[in-house]
Design a protein around this nucleic acid. Sequence first.
DNA 1: ACCGACTCTGCAAAGGATTGCAGAGTTTCA
DNA 2: TGAAACTCTGCAATCCTTTGCAGAGTCGGT
Lengths: 329, 329
Amino acid sequence: MPVTIQDVAREAGVSVSTVSRAFTVPDLVKDETRQHVLHTAERLGYRPNRAARGLITGKTGNFGVIVPDLSNPFFPTVLKGVQARAREADYAVFLADCDENATEEIALVQAMAKQVDGVILCSSRMSPSQLERVVGTTSLVFINRQVRDHPTVLMGAAGGMRQAIDHLAALGHRRVAFLNGPKASWSNRERRRGLRHSARHDMEIVELGPFAPRFEAGPHAADLAIAEGVTAIIAFNDLLALGVMSRLADRGVSVPGEMSVVGFDDIPMAGMATPPLTTVAMQNERAGRAAVDLLVNLLTVSGAEAGDLRRELDCQLIVRASTGVAARS
Amino acid sequence: MPVTIQDVAREAGVSVSTVSRAFTVPDLVKDETRQHVLHTAERLGYRPNRAARGLITGKTGNFGVIVPDLSNPFFPTVLKGVQARAREADYAVFLADCDENATEEIALVQAMAKQVDGVILCSSRMSPSQLERVVGTTSLVFINRQVRDHPTVLMGAAGGMRQAIDHLAALGHRRVAFLNGPKASWSNRERRRGLRHSARHDMEIVELGPFAPRFEAGPHAADLAIAEGVTAIIAFNDLLALGVMSRLADRGVSVPGEMSVVGFDDIPMAGMATPPLTTVAMQNERAGRAAVDLLVNLLTVSGAEAGDLRRELDCQLIVRASTGVAARS
DNA sequence: ACCGACTCTGCAAAGGATTGCAGAGTTTCA
DNA sequence: TGAAACTCTGCAATCCTTTGCAGAGTCGGT
């Protein structure tokens, strides 16, 4: 039932080679013929079978993207970027969710390997030794994870952290808590790095945690921060910050009156919280697009010239209502 | 470099047919031989090339799923269910986001058609006439959209609506606003249907809208509802409800003291709002899984027996802190 | 001892596309 | 006018699997 290249060839009165070339190497076929072929193909509704094409070219025209958890609002946005850019570059994308599970992640890469030209690993949970098991099975691009010799897009947080610190300092905060995320995560290291670089003599930083980067961890973190007597809290991410705010509300601590709160990520719900959360916005969608660019580049480049292996996106503090002038102690 | 069936055959000292059969029709090959083949394949790290297999079987082992907008928090959860169930059934899934654009949606289905066995359309934005253009190009399963002769999983809202109404009635509310979502949406019709079925003589319903099902539409809706003098609001979805609550807070209307608010969907941020939102929880992940089941069924069944074409999931009111006893008027 | 029924295996033909090679025309230039 | 150089097209091999068909053994039964 599906129309093949043969059908088009017969209908157009040419050989299959000509039809094939009309699509893939247009300048090899006479203008007139090409027009005719293309027109016939259009009329018949022909679309090349990518599997068959892949069989001979070795390229599938697909790639995969693996995320740790779709229900974490951070990932769908980068996925959206990946998806959009992939479509522009005429690739289709396989999606997989590894449920925060590194073993599953390996299995997914291996399962995908044969049907994709490459895969994008988003905040990979794999240990270095686990990574070695998948390196080489297919082309890999990482998001928010640095791996030797592999293209990476990083969402730098240092700039945003500095902005956050300066913002709080300007509001008169002198003692601020930072709530750590998962110790192993690249993102957390990156945020801490930003913290160190933004050190000021007029501000004391109290590090707490690590905490799970989730809403549920917020209350515990909030209690610790209150006990530390800080006037502002910078949370590893928005989810955690939201949990903190929820607890503060329960304990009758007004935000930003008595406590200012800053998050990271600018997930959609950050702007919808009460009060709307001041946060550092990442360029998730851009990151997704950049990852695709890196992958396409990796695939098309001769291999001799490596191209750029690393793209770093900066971020931006978005001041909303959860931060205000420091409370008098 | 990748290991093919030939390599395994040579290494195992058998023909390719035997290797193939060892995988696909195990009982046709002698136990001993099969073990040997399987073992050799394992040792060599052989994984069948699905493209080549698909070429001859006509099945790709993939399917697609198209969602209107990944940044709408409703969809990632159903995507998660799709993804998980697909993996269990040994299918890989292509993801596409049509950006709420029906034309794009058509193009995506057509582009996917050749490389999938079927596609799942999630809250399809296509008009009936547009739908006809894609019907037949591949097997289709719908989520939250009814299409003649096509398998569908519906997240019924009638039950949840009745629970919401009864809940509000029990709290003494006598005049309640319903904020309509998009008029064309199946979900909105479904919610209104629930509304009619739950009609009570002791409660008056004021219908407002339609409104865009987004946070930004909330303030406008809230103002209208206040003007109507209702004591409770049922919003088309959580996003809208959250926007309403935000406006109520700005206007100094206490929730639930002066106004109760109910949403639909139970998106993650519903529980994190202040106050946490009372809402009707849909079984998104289950819906995703069900859609895959329907599709697999559609693909494997002889065609003679249609199997069930329709799966309806019920929903559940989750009472949180945004609803309370009606204010004395 | 022979025949039919079984079990297992291999040969070879698909399946839909791409591509090296060669042939048929056409043009250029001496 | 003839040869060389181009331009365009078609033939046929190839990619990796699956599968219909047939052949080679084995076994049981008569």
